[in-house]
């Protein structure tokens, strides 16, 4: 098909280098390709143990525990803690005071709520107490979302548009916790799925250089057999 080198089995690092070699062989873009390899290598900086920048040891421990609860390890892959979720949150919080404030405040709220409920901090509580707390936040979050949809319907309806009474948000005592949990969950999930562990969990196998593009027959057969076109 082409004189381009077949590369199916190479990892990304070798792939970049091989592309560079291929280009040089073709006599084009060699400078750019060489530059690319250089940039790529520089990005692969060695990583030592992570130094926490933003959070107190207690806060960081809570983030670590939350990471394991949000994306736990299972037979397929590791946890969000293994995937570096607390480091990711700490890094971004160190660059953005708004994120730092959301997490400082949210983590303080969580411990305060845990003390009320179980006379314990989140980290020191029993696992079932921790999940009870998170379950309560998920439940309250769903309720708030439903209510918000309801309110949007009222706001959009011409019948109700002057009745501001219908659009007043009813308070939920867990509201602040719901907002915080949404933050910690989305950043934890992001950190997990964008990591090599997350790639493996989803069995993502793209981002390679191929000399030819082939769709495996077993995948095609699998879907066709289960489709209305079988």
């Amino acid at each position: 098909m082409s004189n381009f080198v077949p590369l199916e089995t190479l990892d990304r690092r070798s792939l970049i280098r091989t592309i560079a070699l291929g280009l040089t062989a073709l006599g084009t873009l060699d400078v750019e390709a060489a530059q690319h390899v250089h940039t790529e290598t520089a990005a692969e900086k060695a990583k030592g143990p992570y130094k926490v920048k933003t959070f107190t040891p207690a806060e960081y421990k809570t983030l670590q525990r939350l990471a394991v609860l949000i994306v736990p390890p299972d037979s397929v892959s590791g946890s969000a803690l293994d995937a570096g979720a607390p480091e990711f949150i700490d890094t971004l919080a160190s660059q953005n005071q708004q994120i730092a404030d959301i997490f400082h405040g949210g983590l303080a709220w969580l411990d305060a709520e845990m003390r009320k409920r179980y006379s314990s901090t989140f980290v020191a509580a029993k696992p079932e107490q921790q999940t009870q707390m998170l379950d309560a936040l998920v439940e309250a979050g769903r309720e708030l979302a439903e209510r918000q949809n309801e309110e949007l319907v009222y706001q959009k309806s011409p019948i109700y548009k002057d009745f501001t009474g219908y659009t007043v948000r009813r308070a939920n005592e867990l509201g602040a916790g719901v907002a915080f949990f949404d933050w910690v969950r989305k950043m934890t999930v992001d950190a997990f799925y964008t990591s090599p562990i997350g790639f493996k969990d989803l069995n993502y196998i793209g981002n390679r250089a191929l000399s030819r593009y082939v769709v495996p027959a077993e995948a095609m057969d699998y879907a066709m057999k289960r489709s209305p076109f079988a």
Binding site: L69, I70, V71, P72, D74, T131, L134, D135, V138, G141, A145, D182, R185, K186, V189, D190, Y193, T194, G198, F199, L202, Y204, G206, N207
Partner: peptide, 18 residues
């Protein structure tokens, strides 16, 4: 390729955990 923001909706729908 999994990316930041790609799973927020699913996470909200399915809660958390296993």
């Amino acid at each position: 390729m999994p990316s930041v923001g790609g799973y927020h909706g699913a996470a909200r729908r399915f809660g958390y955990g296993a």
